[in-house]
């Protein structure tokens, strides 16, 4: 119990101190995870729309695979990216291992299926409701897909948030491909893992509270924005 109290105090201290090292770690966490969400959105949203609107052989299989990949173990993704980016691996010449870029790549792979699967569900529902009207107006399937991507933007935003939450919270992948290098690839979750292994449980938990607070704050802002937009656009 005292650990929890210590942690709450330590967390408050960490935030109010504005310790520059913590700020750097938080900024890197945000940079990596927001970048990964952006890339995953660029890949996952069109893929989800294609699966929702398109009719092609192998579509059902692809849907099952993507739904299944929503639960990819971060460690496995990390290992895969590690082997790809390692100097001895196929993409070794770029020297990307142990850089933020490698972490972005790993997190993008991890959350693209989440965003694609959620987007497919959202757009498929919208498609069921609107496809006659859109076809009546002469929209080709690709055009309808684009229209629905825009029309369901508020719901899709929630899918992006889910992806961001997953990216910001995972430790397995970034630990392996980033290496938890101080000042270079050390993010919130790897710092928490490090402090846990040093046995400084109150500090680790305090950092965890900072991370949770951050994710909650972002979600609150997003929620309020979405509510406003829903009221405005129905």
């Amino acid at each position: 119990m005292s650990t929890l109290v210590d942690s709450l105090q330590a967390a408050a201290g960490l935030i109010t101190d504005g310790e520059s090292q913590l700020a750097g770690i938080v900024i890197l966490s945000l940079r990596v995870s927001l970048s990964a969400v952006s890339l995953a959105a660029l890949l996952g949203l069109p893929l989800g729309a294609l699966l929702a609107v398109g009719r092609f052989p192998g579509r059902q299989t692809l849907i099952i695979v993507i739904n299944g990949f929503m639960g990819l173990p971060p460690v496995v993704v990390g290992l895969l990216v590690y082997l790809l980016l390692s100097r001895a691996g196929p993409l070794g010449t770029f020297g990307l291992l142990f850089t933020p870029t490698a972490m972005i790549v790993a997190q993008t792979l991890l959350i693209t299926p989440i965003i694609a699967a959620l987007a497919r569900q959202i757009i498929a529902d919208a498609w069921a409701e609107t496809h006659e009207q859109l076809r009546s107006l002469g929209a080709a399937p690709w055009r309808a897909a684009l229209t629905l991507l825009w029309d369901t933007r508020f719901s899709l935003f929630t899918a992006l948030l889910a992806g961001f939450g997953r990216a910001a919270a995972e430790v397995g992948a970034v630990m392996i491909v980033g290496g938890n290098i101080d000042g270079v690839t050390r993010v919130m979750t790897t710092t928490i893992a490090l402090e846990t292994s040093k046995g400084d449980l109150p500090l680790a938990l305090a950092l965890g509270l900072v991370l949770i607070t951050l994710v909650l704050a972002l979600n609150t802002a997003a929620h309020l924005m979405r509510q406003w937009a829903m009221r405005r656009y129905g």
Partner: peptide
């Protein structure tokens, strides 16, 4: 040609 449906389908705009 054009068609109007029982339930109007409006885009969010």
């Amino acid at each position: 040609q054009a068609m109007v449906f029982q339930r109007p389908i409006m885009l969010r705009t």
